[in-house]
Simulated scan of single mutants.
Amino acid sequence: MVIFPSFLDGFTRSVPIKKEKNNKNDVGRETAEKLAKEAKKNELILSSSGTVKANKSNNLVSVCSKRGMKGINQDCLIVWEEFGCQEDMLFCGIFDGHGPWGHLVAKRVRKSVPASLLCNWQETLASTSLDLDFEIEVDRNLHLFDIWKQSYLKTYAAVDQELKLHPGIDTFCSGTTALTLVKQGEHLVIANVGDSRAVLATTSDDGHLLWDVISNQEAVQIVSLTPVREKSAKRLVEHAVHAWKHKKRGIAKDDISAVCLFFHTSTSQPINPIQVSKQVA
């Protein structure tokens, strides 16, 4: 199941949250943040250019970010394997900051969203049940999606409030996009705020390309033709840089970042339990 929601139209237009402190929520958030620190310690989190491999979920992630010609790189990204200590879960996110404080907003959102989303997902999950007697599988899938939808709405409302109250960040003239993905077993949920782009593609048994959902065939072809999957994100960024020079002559190149997630790695290549490698773009 793949669902691309359109219910998120910006951090500034989100559901209201209560201002008073909720001890239960605070404890849940602290627990989620501790899980994030532990995951980073165990090299399950990647926040710079590099690759992540894991055989428990059979995922392979290639990541690359390249600074443009407009000053500091305002792009931030994160890959969290075994999201929330769940072996079948993965979280990916790209955040494109804009404005004079965009890089700080993007970094803050990258830090806050995963832990907050995990906390809200656990709370929403606890208040409902996936063991309900659904007559057809699609009803169960929609129920699962609704849990993530409510979790995302609560998360972005909370993060939006954090940014507004942050004493060191001016969010009036600055902000960030947020393209995030959660893979839970065979389910895929994607939430997008802003103008970042997601591309979903599959290959047939004979290796020919079948692309769908996002009309970006060129990007899909570049990734599919990259011999070494670990270098796919870097190659995609390099092609984007090359295209920018030809199509936008005289315009300062923007920051360009990409995360390439392969759901099923090649069985011909041995995969260690967890491998994280970093590189400087």
Rank of each mutant, 00 (worst) to 15 (best):
M1K: 09
M1V: 07
M1R: 06
S6G: 13
F7W: 01
F7Y: 14
S14H: 07
K24S: 05
D26T: 12
G28C: 10
G28Y: 08
E30L: 13
T31L: 14
E33C: 08
K34M: 12
A36D: 08
K37F: 01
A39I: 09
E43D: 14
L44R: 10
S47G: 08
S48Y: 02
S49D: 07
G50R: 03
V52D: 01
A54G: 15
N55S: 13
N59T: 08
N59W: 11
N59I: 11
N59L: 10
L60Y: 00
R67V: 02
M69R: 15
K70S: 03
K70L: 08
I72G: 03
I72S: 09
D75R: 05
C76L: 00
W80L: 04
E87P: 03
F91S: 08
G99I: 05
L104I: 00
V105M: 10
V105N: 06
A106C: 05
A106K: 03
K107Y: 07
V113I: 15
V113H: 02
P114N: 12
L117A: 05
C119Q: 10
N120K: 08
W121K: 10
Q122D: 06
Q122Y: 08
Q122K: 14
E123W: 11
T124R: 08
L125T: 07
L125W: 08
A126T: 11
S129W: 04
L130R: 14
F134Q: 06
E137A: 06
V138W: 04
R140K: 14
L142I: 06
L142A: 09
L144D: 07
I147S: 02
K149P: 13
S151F: 00
Y152D: 00
K154A: 00
K154N: 04
V159A: 03
Q161M: 10
L165V: 14
P167G: 10
P167C: 05
T171C: 12
T176Y: 02
T176F: 00
T176I: 06
T177H: 04
Q184D: 15
L188Q: 13
V189E: 02
V189A: 11
A191Y: 13
V193K: 01
G194N: 10
D195M: 05
A201R: 02
H208D: 11
L210K: 15
W211M: 05
D212S: 11
V213P: 01
E218T: 06
Q221I: 04
Q221H: 08
I222K: 03
V223S: 09
S224W: 00
S224C: 09
P227D: 11
E230V: 07
E230F: 00
K231H: 03
K231Y: 08
K231T: 04
L236F: 03
V237P: 03
E238K: 14
H242V: 09
H242G: 09
W244H: 13
W244T: 11
H246I: 14
K247S: 15
G250R: 13
I251R: 10
A252E: 12
D254C: 13
A258T: 06
C260G: 06
F262R: 04
H264A: 06
S266F: 11
Q269C: 05
I271C: 10
N272I: 05
N272F: 15
Q275I: 07
Q275W: 12
Q275D: 09
V276A: 10
S277E: 15
V280T: 12
